[in-house]
Design a protein around this nucleic acid. Sequence first.
DNA 1: CTGCATCCAATATGATACTG
DNA 2: CAGTATCATATTGGATGCAG
Lengths: 134, 134
Amino acid sequence: MTTMTAAERRREAKAAFDSYMDACPTHDVLAVLGNKWTSVVVFQLTQGPRRYADLARALPGVSAKMLTQTLRSLERDGFVARSVTPSVPVQVEYTLTLLGERLVPLLASVRHFAEHNIADIRAARDQYDATATD
Amino acid sequence: MTTMTAAERRREAKAAFDSYMDACPTHDVLAVLGNKWTSVVVFQLTQGPRRYADLARALPGVSAKMLTQTLRSLERDGFVARSVTPSVPVQVEYTLTLLGERLVPLLASVRHFAEHNIADIRAARDQYDATATD
DNA sequence: CTGCATCCAATATGATACTG
DNA sequence: CAGTATCATATTGGATGCAG
């Protein structure tokens, strides 16, 4: 049973690593935050509860589809609560949950890092692109 | 010239918002961190310099293409330095730059948040999925 | 007003084979 | 060893029209 051992071991290592990646909390959170509209929507909600149309107006770049999708995803993760007022027409309000509020200091950390280092990052990019074009 | 004003204003607002998003440092950093392999590659490099094959071995889930792409992207952003030793065969070593080291505490913040809140997040997901299936 | 369905484009990721 | 090239698939994002 030594035949194929190397390939087998590689496959097993890969499967194990894939499960690890799937289970890794950090990676999970990063995937959520990495979505294009997550951070801006959360930021809007830190300003207070917002209705669907409020968000659409504040975020002119988002399509209706992505706004809905982002809100659903945040709701599913427990960051955002959705409450419907059955009037005519219906009124839907989105609010940050307590769990969602805990996202705020984290986003502040990211912002802090970003604002302090973006100049270096962009300088590096410019230099990289310049030397590549040479 | 009052015709189409509403639509025009919407288009302008969207264009302005798009530029804002593109220019936003936080969003920029989040986009980098959101890539599937960025965090794990950076984490490997916090353990010390690594050669290409070292990384491939430590990260059995990554394809050669994505490993190269991730490293190039990190190099372009100034987080990682690539040094070639012209031997036979060539030896390529990747190291975190000083800028890259500054990523470490940020990733630690993300990890801290993730580890403290992942249980609540997953509970929320389970509940959401359960009530949706009802 | 809210938001789903549909179709489409762009990007990210992956598998495989090949090269200096 | 350290990639590149190519092809294929998956995921993400967007535009439009329709519905409760």
